[in-house]
């Protein structure tokens, strides 16, 4: 992918300026490190789209074991049963814990999948230099970046349950291998969102 040569009308890049991502100092495009805080600066994040794709693919791969393997197993009066993320949601639903089932379903299924789709679409649109829906795409990016961390809820739930419910054969909860894969997946999508440079969305804007 080539680096775009043209920037939108009114953009800092077109005026020969760039913003330090870290401290918000606007300075000359020729700077390599921020004149105020010393962070390396770029007109656009270096290899933004390639990096975002790399993290996205990592996340997609990790999402497979996260869903196929058990996230925790429960021993109750000597009997052990394992649950995956989805079967856990189904069990909760069948037991009538609708609010909890919804929280887990939204945080562990809907948000991660939604995030993978949204970021892939954002990357795709930038690669095809689409001038469409720029405001909406920026908003979507902002929501994705904000909401992504909340997927960690399920990992924390497993951690608390495992540490608390630990009464031998009477009742014990063990962590499953999916917990770590799932945490890795959340981190990979967070890194994908940080790598993606939303300014790329606007570089094809040619309005006034």
């Amino acid at each position: 992918m080539s680096i775009r040569q043209s920037y939108s009308h009114g953009s800092a890049a077109r005026s020969g300026l760039l913003l330090c991502h870290h401290c918000g100092k606007t300075q000359s495009i020729s700077e390599v490190a921020c004149v105020r805080c010393g962070t390396p600066v770029h007109v656009r994040n270096a290899n933004s789209i390639q990096r975002a794709w790399a993290y996205l693919i990592t996340a997609m791969v990790l999402y497979i074991p996260a869903n196929m393997l058990p996230i925790m197993s429960t021993t109750f009066l000597g009997k052990t049963s394992s649950n995956t993320i989805l079967s856990g949601v189904v069990t909760l639903w069948e037991h009538g814990s609708y609010p909890i089932a919804m929280v887990i379903f939204i945080a562990s299924v809907l948000i991660p999948i939604g995030k993978l789709f949204v970021l892939s679409w954002l990357c795709f649109m930038v690669q095809h230099r689409s001038p469409l829906l720029m405001r909406e795409r920026t908003l979507l990016y902002r929501i994705t970046e904000f909401i992504g961390r909340w997927s960690m809820i399920d990992v924390f739930v497993v951690a608390i349950l495992v540490s608390l419910v630990h009464l031998g054969n009477l009742m014990t909860i063990y962590p499953g291998p999916a917990a770590l894969s799932f945490a890795g997946m959340v981190i990979a999508t967070m890194l994908a969102a940080t790598s993606f440079d939303p300014r790329l969305i606007w570089d094809n804007y040619d309005g006034e």
């Binding site: 909760l92 909890i100 961390r149 399920d154 924390f156 739930v157 608390i160 349950l161």
Partner: peptide
């Protein structure tokens, strides 16, 4: 951005509701 304090708190509350009946 890597602080997950509030998410952990919600996670704790979810776990409590989950095992409150046990």
């Amino acid at each position: 951005p890597w602080s997950m304090v509030e998410i952990f708190l919600i996670g704790t509350m979810v776990s409590l509701v989950k095992i409150a009946s046990l």
